[in-house]
Nucleic acid binder design. Structure first.
Lengths: 201, 201, 201, 201
DNA sequence: CATGAATGAGATTTCATTCAT
DNA sequence: GATGAATGAAATCTCATTCAT
């Protein structure tokens, strides 16, 4: 049962993608070099360009793979949620797991910025984010949260923004943040009825 | 009344800072090079290192200057606000002005990420963000918004997150987002009393 | 039977070491540049840093190789000497061959000084010198020269010092110097016995 | 009693020479730069080229001044010596004071090597060394040391060589070295008369 | 399928020196 | 007499990529 050449090739490719995801977070998108990738993956430098047309292409593929996995995982979590509060709880758990300086958060942020300078990446990333927002909005709508689309957008943005800010130093803890975020998904708006759509006083 | 050598020096320094702020947004923090800076500022390459100890130092100084100005401007706006809604309106105006792909938004995002890899920058940037959050929280507290600190943190994070997301493509428009964000600062929480502090469901 | 890529690599590396040894002597340790090395070795500039981690590393390896060879050669000569005088004669021959302004002498001197500013080099060079002194001391001890260690140290130092001085201009000729140096290794100490203290045998 | 402009000029010149002597030892002849000199001397960069025609000229003047002082001091010491042994003792004291890694020793060595690449410096330095050897030889001759010229040359060379070697690490201590060096100046040559040939008087 | 030597451009930074003030 | 801004060359080193093997 010996490994074929093709097996080794696949393995090398896989390790390169892994290395790319790590290095984007560690060094920043623009600072990842062919040699770094090769060394981290344990392959010769030439292998990088054998498997990928360019370093950019490798980074893009690696980043999208990670983000896709994560979104899918988040989406699956939401499927199981019975109330908006529960769904929100799941998102808060993400906040607890990803503190803004962990590899995944950094990969996200780096990819956001890189997308601003790479058309293909922007399109792909846009799809990922849109998918997530749509799934979240659907969930919110089911539970009568008003303005589900805008709410989902704000929630998703707040999550990412909180990650960014946390990277800079300690802020309010997750418990307090949760309480505030919950206001966004309160199912009904009592008292002086701030009727949802479109006004600036 | 002719220009002295010192005048020319100051002018060159100023132009370099200006060029740095532009280029961070256009090319990304790590991709800004000495030559690009010199060319954009209209000075000889050697001048960059005459005025600044390193390219990093120049980028850092330029980015912090821009962010400081912006925060100050935002703070001044809030001083004039009479209600949380009004203050929020001002922030929304920012969202309208800065659409996530404009130079200022990109400078913000780039600086956030660069801060993750530069201790000095992280500290300085942390101060700027903290100052802003504090000012905002003060405003909210005056108007009986519950949990003013956490609310301010979420609001600030949401603003930055929305900018990031908008860079990827169109989302809900500013009007809708405003309405949702307003929930965060509703002065009282009637009905089923979601008592503010410290709970995870 | 054509040359492989590996062969060419080895050859390029070898030529760089050769060029480094020449240039240290010609221009001085601190004045040897990447470009000079590449040009002299007949390779592209980038090749220097492909084969060596830094110019310093290349210079160090080159210098130590030359010195190691020379010491070994000197040691082998001493193996064949039957009396201290004969051994001394061999060393004098070195003095005749290396007049203080030849590449080898200059390489020695440059390396001594560079060692003062590079920890690794200092350690390596110290070992080379110690080895030589030890070999010389052993030879002296076999022939009943008193204080063989200190004598060896003085002899080795005198040789190097003479080289340095000769670089400045003509001094006494080798024959005269030999006669004086011979006093150091006279097997017995007649007259008022300057009793030697504290030698480690 | 205020300082005139001329006074300040002289003071700046003096401080630059002082700084040059220090920096040659610390960084090596070829690594001393205009900016380093200006900073160490506490003057503006332009002042260096105002007082000296080039950095090389400044270094040369500074090095020769230090060496001249030292030789003069050593010569004065020898004037007071009554026997070769006493004179030798003085030289040994130098060995104790200058351990091969102190500023003065390093300045000497750096200057020796720089002299190999600068005609003017070589000539000037040659004179300094020759003067010293001549003074030493005169002293030895007065005390019937045979071959006084060659002996002086060997002694001077051994001193410098010992300094160089000591910079690399510990060797025999000064006491042991003294005992060995003393053999060189033993007033008579007993036993098999190694008849000294060809000394230049 | 993989290698690793090579390339030439370009990165940051430091340099000695000049010159207008 | 002194200044300090500016210059343009050159320093070291890293880069993505190519290609012969």
């Amino acid at each position: 049962m010996n490994t074929t050449a093709a097996d080794r090739g696949r393995e090398a490719r896989r390790r390169l993608l892994e290395a790319a995801a790590e290095l984007i977070a560690e060094r920043g998108w623009a600072a990842v070099s062919t040699r770094m990738l090769a060394e981290r993956a344990g392959v010769a430098p030439g292998v990088v360009h054998y498997h990928f047309s360019s370093v950019q292409a490798l980074l893009t593929e690696a980043a999208l793979a990670v983000m896709h996995d994560l979104i899918e995982q988040a989406g699956a979590g939401m499927e199981r949620a019975h109330t908006p509060g529960e769904a929100l709880g799941l998102m808060i758990d993400f906040l607890t797991a990803y503190d803004g300086r962990d590899p995944v958060s950094l990969l996200f942020a780096e990819t956001y910025l890189a997308a601003g300078r790479d058309e293909d990446l922007r399109r792909s990333l846009g799809e990922v984010v849109t998918d997530f927002r749509r799934a979240l909005a659907g969930r919110l709508a089911e539970h009568q949260v008003p303005s589900p689309d805008a709410t989902a957008a704000v929630l998703a943005a707040a999550i990412d923004g909180i990650m960014l800010h946390r990277a800079l130093g300690p802020g309010p803890d997750a418990t307090d943040l949760t309480a505030v975020l919950r206001r966004l998904v309160a199912p009904t708006e009592p008292g002086p009825p701030a009727k949802e759509q479109g006004d600036t006083p």
